[in-house]
């Protein structure tokens, strides 16, 4: 391209530098990639790259530390909020985020997340909810919808024996320690934009020292749901959204004053 042509067009969007230049292990269409990109964009826009520490969980997001170009530690299964608590308390000037799936946060890690929120730890939790255990082969998770078929509920989740799905955001919003708990979805461009704004707010909450912030992101799992990525988005919209409505579940009055 010659100089004249360059002058006549402007760059609208390019891959954020905060993402490492490597391919991910995620399946085609997996919205983990979208969530990664949004976090990278927000960290970059806020200029936090040099003082952010991520805590990776166990699940598909276990290799998150390979994809972000800032410091990362890896927690045992479900223990990311506990480890983030330690990191934040020893290095209070850093921005600490955990990146957890629903199998990690809502199942084995339920104790850690509830107590981290109850203590009002000044950390940000990014919670990807795709209604199954993606990494291990699509088993039923605490967030699996009633009647949803998974590899361990081949005739659909039976609530008589397996109980009802857990709405983590609603539950954590009842705790006094939580400051900002919202649910967003990643199924269409508008929702993705709103999700990015929520992530930005969550980091602002942490920087201002206002306490526990969590953004739940409804996500797709095309491989384990047995659908194409596009069909998965439609499935999310028609099945997950009614059970897990997007919304602001807890917004501390001081948080409501933050203008972005």
């Amino acid at each position: 391209m010659n100089t004249l042509e360059q002058d006549l067009e402007k760059l609208v969007y390019e891959r954020p530098d905060t993402l490492v230049e490597t391919t991910t292990h995620y399946c085609p269409g997996c919205t983990h990639g979208v969530a990664h990109r949004l976090i990278a964009e927000v960290i970059e826009e806020m200029g936090l790259r040099d003082r952010t520490i991520g805590v990776a969980s166990v699940g598909c997001s276990v290799f998150a530390y390979n994809y972000f170009d800032f410091d990362f530690v890896q927690a045992p299964h479900g223990r990311a909020p506990a480890m983030a608590t330690g990191v934040k308390r020893t290095l209070p000037d850093r921005v600490v985020l955990t990146y957890q799936g629903d199998g990690d946060l809502a199942s084995i890690g339920m104790g850690e997340i509830v107590h981290a929120a109850a203590r009002g730890e000044n950390i940000t939790v990014v919670f990807l909810n795709n209604a199954n255990y993606g990494m291990t082969g699509g088993q039923m998770a605490p967030t699996t919808l009633p009647g949803q078929k998974t590899s361990t509920s081949p005739s659909g989740r039976d609530v008589e024996t397996a109980g009802f799905p857990i709405r983590a955001s609603e539950m954590l919003s009842t705790l006094d320690g939580s400051s900002y708990v919202v649910r967003r979805s990643l199924h269409d461009p508008k929702s993705i934009r709103l999700a990015k704004k929520a992530l930005r707010t969550a980091f602002e909450v942490q920087i201002r020292g206002l306490g526990f912030s969590m953004v739940e992101l409804l996500s797709i799992c095309p491989t384990n749901w047995g659908m194409t990525p596009v069909d998965s988005l439609h499935w999310l919209e028609s099945n997950m959204l009614p059970y897990y409505p997007v919304g602001d579940y807890k917004i501390n009055p001081i948080v409501a004053e933050i203008k972005i």
Partner: peptide, 8 residues
């Protein structure tokens, strides 16, 4: 999901 696209 892969941040593979650059737009001008």
């Amino acid at each position: 999901p892969e941040a593979a696209i650059t737009v001008y």
